Deep mutational scan, measured.
Amino acid sequence: DETGKFLVLALYDYQEKSPREVTAKKGDILTLLNSTNKDWWKVEVNGRQGFVPAAYVKFL
């Protein structure tokens, strides 16, 4: 159920650099879980949760 969740689009490829991050490919649609940090947003992609740089994604 996606009610109340926001989707964001990956603008660039991002390769995770730590276990707390997730890899995303340009064009991926990610479920935004938390955007309270202006630099790192928590997302879910391909069943995995983790952080990506906020500058790499935008709201749909």
Rank of each mutant, 00 (worst) to 15 (best):
T23G: 07
N46A: 09
K38M: 09
K25M: 10
K25T: 07
G27Q: 02
V43H: 01
V22P: 03
A24L: 15
D28E: 12
Q49K: 09
L11P: 01
G4S: 12
L9F: 10
K38I: 08
K58H: 08
W40A: 00
V8W: 05
E44D: 07
Y56G: 04
R20F: 13
Q15K: 11
L30G: 02
D39V: 14
L11S: 02
E16G: 15
G27S: 03
V22N: 02
L32C: 07
Y56E: 00
D28V: 06
V57T: 01
W40D: 00
Y14L: 03
F59H: 08
A54D: 01
F6Y: 12
V22R: 02
L7S: 06
P53N: 04
L30Y: 08
L32R: 01
G47I: 06
F6I: 15
K58F: 10
E2M: 14
Y56H: 05
Y56L: 15
E2F: 14
D13F: 10
E44R: 06
N37M: 07
E21S: 06
D1P: 14
V43R: 00
L32A: 02
K38W: 07
Y56N: 05
E2P: 13
D28A: 08
F59S: 09
R48H: 06
D1Q: 13
Y56Q: 03
K26Y: 06
D13A: 06
F6D: 06
T23A: 04
E16I: 06
Y14S: 02
S18A: 08
L33Q: 01
K26C: 09
T3R: 13
D13V: 08
V57K: 00
T36P: 03
D39M: 13
K26G: 04
W40P: 00
G4Q: 13
V52R: 02
F59P: 11
A54F: 07
E2I: 14
K5S: 10
N37A: 07
R48Y: 06
Y12E: 08
D28M: 11
P53G: 06
D13H: 06
I29R: 03
E44F: 06
R20L: 14
V22L: 11
K17V: 07
I29C: 08
N34I: 09
E44S: 09
V22S: 02
N34M: 08
V8I: 08
V52M: 11
E21M: 06
T23F: 05
D1A: 13
K58W: 10
V22Y: 03
Q15V: 15
D13R: 04
Q49H: 07
G50N: 01
L9Y: 12
K5A: 10
A24R: 03
R20A: 11
T3F: 13
V52E: 01
P19A: 10
Y12C: 15
P53A: 07
L30D: 00
S35T: 12
E44Q: 08
Y56M: 15
L7G: 02
V52H: 01
L9V: 15
S35K: 12
L7F: 15
F51Y: 14
V57S: 00
K25Q: 08
K38D: 09
L9W: 05
D39H: 15
L32T: 00
W40S: 00
T31C: 13
S18K: 06
E16K: 14
K42Q: 11
R20Y: 14
T31W: 12
Q49V: 15
Y14F: 07
K38G: 09
V22A: 02
V52K: 02
E21G: 13
Y56R: 02
G27F: 05
G4L: 12
Y14H: 03
A54T: 05
K17W: 05
A54Y: 05
E2V: 14
E16T: 07
F6K: 11
P53M: 09
P53E: 04
L11M: 10
L7T: 08
A10N: 02
A55Q: 10
V45R: 07
N34S: 12
V45L: 14
E16R: 12
F51V: 04
L7E: 04
K5W: 12
R48W: 07
V57Y: 03
G47E: 03
G50F: 07
G50M: 05
K5F: 13
G27H: 04
D39Y: 15
K42S: 05
D39R: 13
P19W: 14
A55N: 11
G4Y: 13
Q49M: 09
S18Y: 06
R48M: 07
A10L: 15
F59I: 15
S35E: 05
L60I: 13
E44V: 06
N46F: 08
G47S: 04
K5L: 12
A24D: 02
V45D: 00
L7C: 14
K26E: 07
E44P: 01
P19C: 12
K58M: 14
E2W: 13
D1W: 14
G27C: 09
R20C: 15
L11W: 07
V52T: 01
L9K: 06
L33P: 00
G4C: 15
W40Y: 05
T31I: 15
R48T: 05
D28T: 07
T31Y: 11
K38C: 12
F59Y: 09
Y56I: 15
L7K: 11
A54S: 13
L9M: 14
T3I: 12
L32I: 09
